[in-house]
Simulated scan of single mutants.
Amino acid sequence: MSKVKYYYDSENLAYTKIKTRKRKKIGFFMLFALASALFGLLSFVVLLNTPYFETPKDKLQAREIENLKLNYSLLDKKMEQVNGVMEAIAERDNNLYRVYFNKAVIPDSVRRAGLPGVDRYKLLEGYDNSQLVANTTKRMDVLTKELVVQSKSLDEILKLAEAKSDFLAAIPAIQPVRNENLKRMASGFGYRTDPFTKVKKMHKGMDFTAQTGTPIYATGDGVVTRADNSASGYGNHIVIRHGFGYETLYAHLSKYKSRAGQRVKRGDVIGYVGSTGRSEAPHLHYEVHKDSKVVNPLNFYYGNISAAEYVAIAHLANQENQSLD
């Protein structure tokens, strides 16, 4: 039952009952209903924009975003692998191919410059995962630029190579001992501990340990200029003059399969591993000379090993261990 309301009539000095018109009651009811509806709608909109309430559409979008992040993460790992391969190719290009043809190296600032355009990634801004998408896009652009630069460089090298087939055949471009015959790469180029004096001195080549009698291969076309043991410390050794300023030396052989004055091709067997001369164990000591100066043989193994094998040999060669001669 609704409450009865009165008001005090000062003229009649009495309380008079307040009569509410039916139309006014309906108006109050409609106003209340409208206010309630507006409040409910406002509350629903606020609730939809809070993290505590998710619609099926929101859940679907959330799953799509997580899948997107996962795909970008996988793409990032793949680009990391591709980047490693590109770095190995670039190193060979600068330190091997371009050196051979007396061409200036391509600096990293040029290789990894990315693509031009100040506002190139502006369209990717303003989203929840803009940083992730932009970083991945930038890395892809850098890799794209590296591929373009490397492709142009190899095209240039190819043109030079077509005109210098004799030069390429003469370059000492393979390992003198095959990987399957190696026990290990014992010592690299640089300062190493002498096995007899235990003092560090310049080791002018690379030592490959292998069983006595293991075949030794000519690393490039050329003419055998020496096959004797008259040089101190080298024992039985062979020297091949390849031309174009290149010579290679193979030391501590057990026996020869070539003689002075003989012309050999890359891959020909010229002798066998031994331990003659100043040697601590059976191995091949191998040197590369360019214009009468000794150089690191590691830069010349591009003809018969993969990129992964090259990285492994480079790691072993750079260790400061003890040489075998």
Rank of each mutant, 00 (worst) to 15 (best):
G267A: 06
F300V: 01
Y310E: 10
E309T: 07
L147I: 06
S10A: 15
E156F: 03
R178V: 01
S292G: 05
R226D: 13
A210F: 04
E146N: 05
L60Q: 14
D58Q: 11
F101V: 05
G261D: 13
A308S: 13
Y234N: 12
S232L: 04
G243I: 01
P215E: 14
L60V: 02
E156G: 08
F53M: 09
E309V: 01
E125Y: 02
T197W: 07
V239P: 03
S254V: 01
V199Q: 15
N296Q: 03
V288E: 04
T16C: 05
R278K: 10
Q322C: 02
L115F: 05
M1E: 12
R278F: 14
I305S: 05
G220D: 15
P195R: 12
K198Q: 10
L298P: 00
F167L: 15
K164M: 07
I26M: 10
Y6M: 07
T144I: 00
R112D: 15
I89H: 08
G274I: 03
D221N: 15
L34F: 13
K257E: 15
I65T: 12
M79D: 14
L42E: 10
N49I: 00
H289Y: 14
N49Q: 11
N318I: 00
A218V: 02
T20V: 10
G114S: 08
A186T: 07
V45N: 07
K57Q: 15
G271V: 03
V311F: 05
Y6K: 07
Y272P: 04
Q81K: 14
F300A: 00
V133Y: 07
T144K: 08
R111K: 15
R23V: 01
Q150L: 14
T20G: 00
L124Q: 08
K293W: 01
L34D: 04
E54W: 10
Y272C: 04
L60D: 15
T144E: 12
V288N: 01
L115E: 15
D207A: 12
N83K: 09
D119C: 00
Q262N: 06
L70S: 09
T248V: 07
K3T: 05
V99H: 08
G245Y: 02
K290W: 03
T219A: 11
R266A: 11
S292L: 06
N229K: 12
K255M: 06
V85S: 12
S165K: 13
F300L: 00
V239T: 13
A113R: 12
K293E: 14
A35M: 13
A35V: 10
V4Y: 07
G213E: 13
A33E: 08
P282R: 06
N102M: 04
R278M: 10
D108F: 09
D155T: 02
F244A: 06
K103P: 00
F39E: 10
A281M: 08
T219Y: 08
E247H: 08
E11C: 00
D268H: 03
G267C: 06
I216P: 05
G27M: 11
D58G: 05
K201C: 03
K3G: 05
T248Y: 06
K24Q: 11
I18Q: 06
R192A: 09
R178T: 06
D128L: 03
H237I: 00
